[in-house]
């Protein structure tokens, strides 16, 4: 491995990192809102909403993300009505098309994770909240949602990592994020291994940090599962005796 080349590659790839992160963050944020809406539609008991959410999840999980990206970026421009609409400045932009496709895609996967979380909330908790006189919205905000989030967090963490990886597909529609820059350097120099190692290292680093962050949030959200500190110390002291 050529050290100087590796360093240069690292510098160019890191300069593309903000774009990867902003793609992922925007898509995850927008996707989360849509996912929550879908999960609520799926658990609402209203037949039309339920079936819409089912169909949505089926379609977006059953087709490759790349096809979804192409359908939005290349496909929509086929219609003059779209080209002349006020949305055209957004739909013409590769960045926003990628964000849209990634958000729509992650929403399908995340909605199933959130639905699992919602279903795991014990009925007794909801009944207790109702018995305390909380209105429906407050029950949802104070009881159901926090419990569901805590339950769904590990699965959601995996989905966020998938999204970080999925942003690489944006490079195929000309966006120069980390994989895009890596592909350019590879095709210019044909030194695939060095570039691969550097790009791989960057993605691994992001995903490692993300995993840690999720673990930290998980830890913060579950104080009730931990022994109080002095109790733990007492237990240790007890063992030592």
């Amino acid at each position: 491995m050529d050290w100087e080349f590796t360093q240069e590659t690292f510098v160019s790839l890191v300069s593309a990192l903000p774009l990867t992160l902003s793609l992922a963050a925007t898509a995850i944020a927008l996707g989360a809102i849509l996912a929550l809406a879908l999960a609520l539609a799926r658990t609402s008991g209203i037949l039309v909403l339920d079936w819409f959410a089912r169909a949505y999840v089926f379609v977006f999980r059953g087709t490759p993300l790349l096809v979804q990206i192409f359908l939005i970026y290349y496909g929509l421009s086929q219609f003059p009505a779209v080209r002349h609409s006020i949305f055209w400045p957004v739909l013409r932009d590769a960045y926003w098309c990628a964000v849209m496709a990634l958000s729509l895609n992650t929403a399908a996967y995340a909605s199933e994770i959130i639905r699992g979380g919602l279903l795991s909330v014990p009925h007794g908790q909801v009944e207790a909240a109702r018995a305390s006189g909380m209105p429906r919205l407050m029950v949802f905000r104070r009881i159901v949602l926090p419990l569901a989030i805590r339950q769904a967090l590990p699965g959601y963490g995996n989905e966020m990592i998938s999204m970080i990886k999925a942003t690489s597909l944006a490079s195929i529609i000309t966006i120069m994020e980390v994989t895009g820059v890596a592909a350019r350097i590879i095709s210019e120099t044909y030194r695939a291994i060095e570039v691969f190692v550097v790009a791989g290292f960057i993605y691994l680093a992001i995903n490692f940090l993300l995993t840690r962050l999720v673990q930290l949030v998980e830890f913060k959200l579950s104080p009730h599962l931990r022994q109080p500190e002095n109790a733990a110390q007492m237990a240790i002291a007890g063992d030592a005796r």
Binding site: S168, S171, T179, I186, S187, R191, A192, F196, A199, L204
Partner: peptide, 20 residues
């Protein structure tokens, strides 16, 4: 490693690396 890096990168590695 394989679960942390994009699949597209692996395809680039094999296709361009293999060609080289």
């Amino acid at each position: 490693v394989l679960r942390g890096i994009p699949d597209l990168l692996v395809i680039y590695l094999l296709y361009f690396g293999g060609s080289a």
